[in-house]
Design a protein around this nucleic acid. Sequence first.
DNA 1: GTCTATATTTCGATAGAC
DNA 2: GTCTATCGAAATATAGAC
Lengths: 211, 211
Amino acid sequence: MSFPPPHRARSRVDVSGEESRAKAVAAATELFALAGYKGTSVAAVAARTGLSQSGLLHHFPSKAALLAAVLEERDRQDGAFLTGSTSPPLGWAAFDALTALVARNSTRPRMVGLFVRLAAEAIEPSHPAHAWVQQHYAGIRTWLGEAVRTGVDRGEFRQDAPVESIVRTTVAVIDGLQQQWLLQPGELSMASEFEAHVSALRARWSSVEVR
Amino acid sequence: MSFPPPHRARSRVDVSGEESRAKAVAAATELFALAGYKGTSVAAVAARTGLSQSGLLHHFPSKAALLAAVLEERDRQDGAFLTGSTSPPLGWAAFDALTALVARNSTRPRMVGLFVRLAAEAIEPSHPAHAWVQQHYAGIRTWLGEAVRTGVDRGEFRQDAPVESIVRTTVAVIDGLQQQWLLQPGELSMASEFEAHVSALRARWSSVEVR
DNA sequence: GTCTATATTTCGATAGAC
DNA sequence: GTCTATCGAAATATAGAC
């Protein structure tokens, strides 16, 4: 009465491996968000994952590879939020989409912390997340820039609206609010403050008189 | 024909000590600005100072003490720029003062880098610069908040101007522009972008119709 | 005041057993 | 796939000579 060694045996091992890997990425995300990349040790990630240091490094050849996996997962979760919609928001509607993004970030302090820490660390070109951070900013600038330009063409914005400045300051507001929000959790609403910024932009650059 | 051992001998030693200390603070400022506090080793600061590691630690009992000296010097250089004027800028004039501050920062990438790195690192309460960063933000919020409230009282701003939001978003713009400026040096003018923000604020909240 | 030498951790990564 | 053991490098800090 022997049970046949099921395919599940092989399968279960694989699943466990996948689970360990996913757990490790989640643990690394949390710790990188709290202490940054340099401030987090592989051993700490391993401990939180429930593996030994070597056990963790079996899934990722190096600490930098672990970071790459974290960023990949971050992109996977966020990738389609702005650029992924089939009908891309255009004109002023782009700012409504951004408000929704900010509201969503307000429920994800870990992801916000991860970005703020890495963005500051990765200013240095030699940082393993440098290219990723630059691509992130380039992507947002392109998306929002095109949206505003379309708004100008459609007559939603004044014809003399300075597209690049609107884009730069809007991105700056989002980043700066995240810093303040992380430093004083609960003492400000990122979404409300961002809407105040959009309100000022509309007053200045909308083609219709709003105030 | 012996030269009397002059008081200068004692004095010269002291001066040299003071100079080494000052050099070390300058070196630490540069390196902290480039790689942050955690990413900079005491040995690297010592090498740039022209001292051995132990020679440096003779002046500062610990790495944290070195950071404290860096922050103290930073405050000494910047302390009087905003709050130090005898007649504090009030109302919209406060934003002109901020524009001047941003323009000044545009010539001091090291100081900007230092702040951006430390602000992100020191979100964590256990970071040795945590209290300093919180005080920095509290100070700016108080100063700008009072200026805007005075502007409201004087009738320069609309009576329904949301003071706290104006303060928060203005601080956010400054911080966010610094991040972008450090990441892409030369590709944006912090002063121009900040003025665009102030322009939008005036359009929205000035008591006189400006646009 | 500055140095050499060293103590003590901690880190990232590798080797090899199971 | 995971572990123990370990290596080599780098970090902070201290001791003691000059």
